[in-house]
């Protein structure tokens, strides 16, 4: 076998293949968009798609890490809801409270993540069940804190969501982009990053190799909690107030870009760049469907079909017998 063919095969079987599926779909959508409306390919519209990807991008980043280890975090929606309520509720229009509250809310995300990771590593209960449980608890706590939109934020708080950098790039989306690139770099170039892949690939082998399996699992849930809280701050910036169900849809929708981007639910394969492209794909898809003047309801159908199409492409051969 020649080196060329083996590297070609590697190319198609490695994590990169996810990126190319998504890039292909992105190009396809773009071509459709251009042919549907001449307003589609305007910089104004594209910058709009970019801006609208922010929230999903932030929460999906943490979700990707959890899924890379073979787990899942179903508590992100509730973390977002709770954090958004606390953000606007505690700031309550007082500019001097902005920074301490942001710090505090992010810390809460970290603590919740640590609790998730702790329960998972100590009890051995499947992450799906653990985070489902903590998600319910957090939703209850959110509702105890307030049953409707609570508090307010000072003027200028919307900079994160609506601010524009030179050339019209959204502040929040650019922040998310930078964080993704940083995460991609760290995942590839740090020991912990490589251990995340190893734990997801084969947790038993990881333990036998003496890798700090528990610490890795703790870390990914902590990061998932942190990014969920960050998403909440973005949403408060966007809507001006925290709401008790504002995160509810993010629990499941945060998984879509991850799997569409080629990260396997079984763990160990994929990466954050695929997720980022998956986020842009979802954002572009919704935008395109608006242009197509399809009832917004079909956006859901389209999203479901995209999931099915994408995961069917990544499917592995079945084992013997």
């Amino acid at each position: 076998m020649t080196v060329q063919s083996s590297s070609l095969r590697r190319f198609f079987r490695g994590s990169q293949v996810g990126l190319f599926v998504v890039i292909g779909l992105l190009i396809l959508l773009f071509v459709i968009g251009v042919s549907v409306s001449d307003r589609f390919a305007t910089s104004r519209n594209i910058l709009n798609v970019y801006e609208q990807s922010t929230g999903l991008a932030l929460v999906s980043l943490g979700q990707t890490l959890a899924i890379l280890t073979g787990g899942i975090d179903l508590s992100v929606g509730s973390i977002i809801s709770l954090s958004s309520m606390l953000t606007s509720g505690l700031i309550n229009g007082n500019p001097s409270m902005v920074l301490p509250v942001i710090a505090g809310v992010l810390l809460i995300g970290i603590v919740i993540g640590a609790i998730n990771g702790g329960i998972i590593t100590v009890t051995g209960v499947h992450p799906l069940i653990v985070t489902l449980g903590t998600g319910a608890i957090l939703q209850g706590i959110t509702l105890l804190y307030g049953l409707g939109p609570t508090g307010k934020v000072p003027r200028g708080f919307d900079y994160f969501a609506y601010g524009r950098l030179p050339a019209g790039f959204s502040v929040g989306a650019t922040f998310a982009l930078v964080v993704f690139l940083l995460a991609a770099f760290l995942l590839r170039n740090t020991r912990t990053g490589r251990h995340i892949y190893a734990v997801g690939d084969d947790p038993h082998a990881a333990t036998l190799m003496g890798l700090p399996t528990r610490r890795v699992i703790m870390l990914v849930y902590i990061l998932s909690g942190f990014f969920a809280s960050l998403t909440a701050i973005y949403l408060v910036s966007r809507f001006g107030v925290g709401q008790p169900y504002t995160g509810a849809n993010y629990t499941l929708s945060s998984i879509t870009p991850v799997v569409v981007g080629g990260t396997m639910l079984a763990g160990g394969r994929g990466g954050v760049l695929g997720t980022l492209l998956g986020v842009y794909l979802v954002s572009l898809l919704n935008n395109l469907l608006n242009f197509l003047d399809v009832s917004t309801h079909f956006q859901l159908v389209a999203q479901g079909l995209v999931i099915i199409a994408a995961v069917s492409l990544y499917v592995e051969k079945r084992r013997i017998a």
Partner: peptide
Amino acid sequence: VLFPHLSVAENIYIG
């Protein structure tokens, strides 16, 4: 005790 989706080099030096 190998990680099938990591490279040979990475498997050798993991940890």
